[in-house]
């Protein structure tokens, strides 16, 4: 009964979503056709979509998309692995936590974009420079979440582990890390979106291959429909990243109160 109602509600939501997108495209089309804005700066929705379709059939487009996805995923992976490893160590050693606290609070708010010149100075106009930028902000995002997660171990759960003779490694693997996992996943989900923004930004500014650089090339061409088409692609990429993160969350946290479904046995 409830699941049927939920399914119906879900359907209605999806229909509304499609209606919303169509409404947006129609408005865009009409505004562009009305000529309020020069066609040079605002191509019609239909022109842009046709152009997008053409892009999707060229191998060059897919190579560019792959560049962006590789930079994004490599940056995110480096950030997450480093943040989980360092965050766990720092979070578990009170001395380290106290010693690093003020440095972390100072470094964390520095915008990743502000370190672009530094990255270029160190690594030149390269993908490595872009990676430094992509890693920076997501690292702190996840690092702080790991610190919170590691500190959130339930006292009863800890007493249980101690009284049943779980050693350090077993406690880490079966108690501390699972406790921290919901925090880590929230951190990764936010970090994934931030990393995408930074990947495109780095490509625009540093000029390493990827969607960002191609957008800049289309701007200077000038090729407005191509530019708009790629902006739509970055939006689509953002949606995919978010969907993937949500799916991973549901899978990894199937046991967590925020995800699990109570089922009487």
């Amino acid at each position: 009964m409830t699941s049927v109602a939920a399914a119906a509600a879900g359907r209605r939501q999806r229909v509304l979503g499609v209606v919303g997108i169509l409404g947006f495209l129609l408005t865009w089309e009409l505004v562009a056709l009305s000529g309020t804005v020069s066609r040079t700066y605002l191509p019609t929705a239909s022109t842009t979509l046709l152009r997008l379709g053409r892009e999707l059939t060229t191998p060059g487009f897919w190579a560019i998309l792959a560049d962006t996805v590789i930079t994004w995923s490599a940056g995110l992976a480096i950030a997450v692995v480093a943040a989980v490893a360092l965050g766990t160590v720092v979070g578990l050693v009170p001395f380290l936590e106290r010693a690093t606290h003020s440095s972390v609070e100072f470094l964390r708010p520095i915008p990743s974009v502000a370190i672009i010149p530094l990255a270029v100075l160190v690594a030149g106009l390269s993908r490595e420079a872009a990676l430094m930028v992509v890693v920076y902000a997501p690292f702190w995002q996840v690092f702080v979440q790991v610190l919170h997660g590691v500190a959130d171990v339930d006292p009863v759960a800890r007493d249980t582990a101690r009284s049943y003779g779980l050693g350090r490694l077993h406690r880490l693997r079966h108690l501390v890390l699972p406790t921290a996992l919901p925090y880590v996943i929230t951190g990764v989900r936010l970090a994934a979106s931030i990393a995408l923004v930074l990947t495109i930004t780095a490509e625009l500014v540093i000029g390493n291959p990827g969607l960002g650089r191609q957008i800049e090339l289309y701007r200077s061409a000038p090729d407005a429909p191509g530019l708009y088409a790629l902006v739509l692609v970055t939006g689509g990429l953002g949606i995919l990243v978010n969907l993937a993160a949500r799916a991973a969350e549901r899978r990894l946290l199937h046991w967590h109160p925020s995800v699990r479904r109570e089922a009487a046995l």
């Binding site: 009863v156 007493d159 249980t160 009284s163 049943y164 079966h174 699972p178 996992l181 109160p257 699990r260």
Partner: peptide
Amino acid sequence: LAPPKKMAVVFQEYGRSLYPWL
């Protein structure tokens, strides 16, 4: 001096003593 191997404890708060991820 530390939790002995020969002793097992059952805690009042079973919901917190059992690990939900296992």
